[in-house]
Simulated scan of single mutants.
Amino acid sequence: MPKLVDSHVHLDDAAFAIDRGAVIERATLAGVDTMIVPAVDIDSWPRIRALCANHARIHPAFGLHPVFLPHHAPAHVDALSSWLDDGSAVAVGEIGLDFHVAGLDHELQRLYFVRQLQLARERDLPVIVHARGALEEVSLTLRRTGGLRGVVHSFSGSEQQARQLWEMGFHLGIGGPITYERAQRLRRIVAQMPIEFLLLESDAPDQPGAAHRGQRNEPAYVAEVLRCVAALRGEPEADIATATRANARRLFDLDRRSA
């Protein structure tokens, strides 16, 4: 069975409170033996740290998510810098811009995004980026900041936007949406993109694939994303699994952390 990395799963979410252990076991049985858990706000940092401390192959990322803007305060960025001091974080995330959700101040989002990008650059950490309704500005901000690496998770942009990202060395996070036949543009991008910039993800408990529409998503379902990607590219599943696993381990420096 191919070994897979779920590069984006909110395993600390309350949706998993009752059966988190069983969810992890099902993921392992499906071949998903490594997971990256990004934070959304300052309150999520301690529970993610505690969760990851008990599982050698579950790794934390800490950041301030744009959708949770009402929960943030400017001092939280300074707190993030201190929180990263123990070296456990594999990335700064989930950070970014969201111009889709109404009522979220765009200027304030930009402030938090840029400050966290600068922090990631100072710490030499990759970033896990959320870009909904704001991909063009996110790409411009990444280029303007410079000296960064990371992944734009749940990528849903154009071929040109995808190319701009991987030309900057950024990865595309691909999950459940690829399994819907209507996602023709995304499928075309994934079928043709350079494999070295592809990461697999669940974004669980959100964004379930076509086989689980309306249900809670789980990291185990990354195996279904793998099958879909392999079919679209006309390549063996084992080859896609090996390549995307290597991409994730390289981006998040997991080999050093597992040593």
Rank of each mutant, 00 (worst) to 15 (best):
Gly103Arg: 07
Asn247Trp: 07
Pro60Arg: 07
Leu165Val: 08
Leu135Gln: 08
Pro177Arg: 00
Phe170Val: 02
Gly21His: 11
Arg182Ala: 15
Tyr180Gln: 10
Gly175Gln: 04
Gly169Cys: 04
Val37Thr: 13
Glu94Cys: 00
Gly146Val: 02
Phe113His: 03
Ala39Gly: 12
Arg123Tyr: 01
Gly175Leu: 00
His212Ala: 11
Thr34Gly: 11
Pro126Ala: 02
Asp239Pro: 11
Ile95Phe: 01
Glu167Gln: 15
Val77Asn: 01
Ile95Tyr: 01
Leu104Ile: 07
Val9Glu: 00
Ala22Phe: 10
Met1Asp: 11
Tyr112Arg: 04
Gln160Ile: 15
Gln184Phe: 13
Gln215Trp: 02
Val229Tyr: 08
Cys52Tyr: 01
Phe113Gln: 00
Ser156His: 10
Gly103Val: 07
Arg256Asn: 13
Leu142Asn: 03
Gly93Tyr: 02
His59Ala: 10
Val101Cys: 13
Gly209Trp: 02
Asn247Glu: 09
Glu159Arg: 14
Ile42Val: 12
Ala134Arg: 03
Gly209Val: 03
Val32Tyr: 01
Asp206Tyr: 14
Ala50Glu: 14
Asn217Thr: 04
Thr28Cys: 15
Arg213Trp: 12
Leu254Asn: 00
Ala102Tyr: 11
Val32Lys: 00
Gln109Thr: 02
Ala75Cys: 08
Asp43Gln: 12
Glu237Val: 06
Leu232Met: 13
Glu235Gln: 15
Gly93Gln: 05
Ser202Asn: 05
Ala211Gln: 14
Gly147His: 02
Gly146Leu: 03
Asp41Pro: 05
Glu136Lys: 14
Leu186Gly: 11
Leu69Trp: 06
Ala50Pro: 12
Val222His: 02
Glu237Leu: 09
His59Asn: 08
Phe197Ile: 09
Leu117Ala: 09
Gly96Asn: 01
Met168Leu: 15
Ala259Phe: 12
Ala75His: 11
Leu64Tyr: 03
Gln116Leu: 03
Leu198Asp: 02
Leu108Ala: 15
Thr28Trp: 10
Tyr180Met: 08
Trp45Glu: 09
Ala39Arg: 00
Leu104Glu: 05
His212Glu: 13
Arg26Leu: 03
Ser202Leu: 01
Pro38Ser: 01
Phe99Trp: 09
Phe62Pro: 10
Arg149Ser: 13
Asp86Ser: 06
Ile36Met: 14
Thr141Lys: 10
Pro66Ala: 02
Gly21Trp: 08
Val23Leu: 00
Arg163Cys: 12
Arg26Ala: 08
Ala102Val: 10
His8Leu: 05
Gln118Cys: 09
His153Tyr: 06
Ala120Met: 03
Arg115Glu: 06
Arg26Gln: 07
Asp78Cys: 04
Arg49Leu: 14
Arg144His: 11
Ala210Phe: 06
Arg115Val: 04
